[in-house]
């Protein structure tokens, strides 16, 4: 009886967005009286960090500090249309829509500044700290708060912009089946190192190495969190989680958190992650979607590592001690 170590890997190509009804999302941006830019969306942030990255996109295009952006996702009945946050599409679709809206709003912002400063809008630039200034003559400038006040109460203009991302639905070529259903694909690979106890059948994930090609990491901290949190979730699917009972009777099924098993802090492997950036032409600043894919590759990687460790090829999740032991018994004719 021994602990057997094994290593396995698996790779995933994951599409960003889907091919249903054009998969559109819209964004509206307007400036308040004091120069806060409100990004109105129906796209919901349920913790994935969408508000963070779309605020970054808006700030980058407008040339204003991040703190000047307020993302409002209040109401899907009254907000601009969004298909939803699924298919790893949020950052890509909504980011693009926000960039388009912010580009239009920036044009108005510069036109208002041009009238206030009595210069040509083409000679203006943003300094990133809240001022619009004349290129080469930076002392001639106006702060976004004064600019917004002038637009509202003097010039009578709205500083606003409209944005939409729409990739037309793509039908397959009848002769070849060829089609273009997504906007780009992210790529990833997980290497898992596991220890299999051949007496108890318990599998422990020791280390996971994650390599992700994601276009551009708009926010490296949230990317790292998504990659490693997703790897944990993949490991959880692989080894623990099942809503169906392991045994035929429903009474053996998990009914609450004490029976629905998932790894907690004591079960986590050491993780090493590498992010590769090859910007996608269609992505906002080159970003691809990496929502769902992060939980994909860890599962087959762990299955392959178990096979490498003890020769048991498991094809049904979760890879429970019982299944490992039955596999070992089958190998030895026991």
């Amino acid at each position: 009886m021994a602990i057997r170590r094994g290593r396995g890997y698996a790779a995933v190509n994951y599409p960003t967005g889907m091919n249903l009804g054009g998969d559109p999302s819209q964004a509206l941006i307007h400036a308040t009286t004091t120069g806060t830019f409100v990004v109105s969306l129906s796209s919901v942030d349920l913790g994935q960090g969408l508000k963070t990255v779309v605020a970054q996109c808006a700030a980058e295009v407008l040339g204003l500090p991040y703190g000047n952006i307020l993302v409002d996702t209040a109401d899907t009945d009254t907000g601009p249309h969004c298909m939803g946050t699924f298919a790893s599409r949020g950052t890509h679709r909504v980011g693009n829509a926000v960039i388009m809206a912010a580009t239009e709003a920036r044009e108005v912002m510069l036109a208002v500044a041009a009238d206030e400063l009595e210069v040509d809008a083409g000679d203006l630039e943003t300094d990133g700290s809240g001022f619009v200034q004349v290129k080469g003559a930076e002392q001639k400038r106006i702060h976004i708060t004064d600019l917004a006040l002038a637009a509202h109460f003097k010039q009578g203009r709205t500083i606003s912009g409209r944005g939409i991302f729409l990739k037309e639905k793509n039908d397959p070529v009848p002769e070849t089946g060829e089609m273009d259903p997504d906007s780009c694909q992210a790529h990833a690979c997980t290497v898992a190192v596991v220890d299999v106890d051949d007496e108890t059948g318990v599998v422990e994930v020791v280390t996971m190495y994650n390599a992700y090609e994601i276009g551009r990491a708009l926010n490296p901290a949230t990317v790292a969190q998504q990659v490693e949190g997703g790897a944990w979730m993949g490991m959880s699917h692989a080894l623990f989680e099942a809503t169906e009972p392991y045994y035929p009777a429903r009474s053996h099924g998990p009914a609450d958190f004490s029976e629905y098993l998932m790894p907690t802090a004591a079960d986590i492997p050491e993780q090493h992650s590498a992010i590769l950036e090859r910007p996608a032409e269609s992505g906002p600043f080159g970003a691809k979607g990496i929502g769902e894919m992060t939980a994909n590759a860890p599962i087959p990687a762990i299955a392959n590592a178990i096979y490498d460790a003890c020769g048991v090829r498991l094809t049904a999740m979760p890879f429970t001690p019982e299944r490992v032991l039955r596999g070992l018994d089958a190998l030895t004719g026991g």
């Binding site: 913790g47 490693e228 997703g230 944990w232 979730m233 907690t264 004591a266 993780q271």
Partner: peptide, 17 residues
């Protein structure tokens, strides 16, 4: 630390952070 937070479930981070 691990023992102290062993009764607390996190679905996002993977716990390491």
């Amino acid at each position: 630390v691990v023992e102290a937070i062993s009764g607390n479930v996190c679905r996002c981070t993977g716990y390491a952070s």
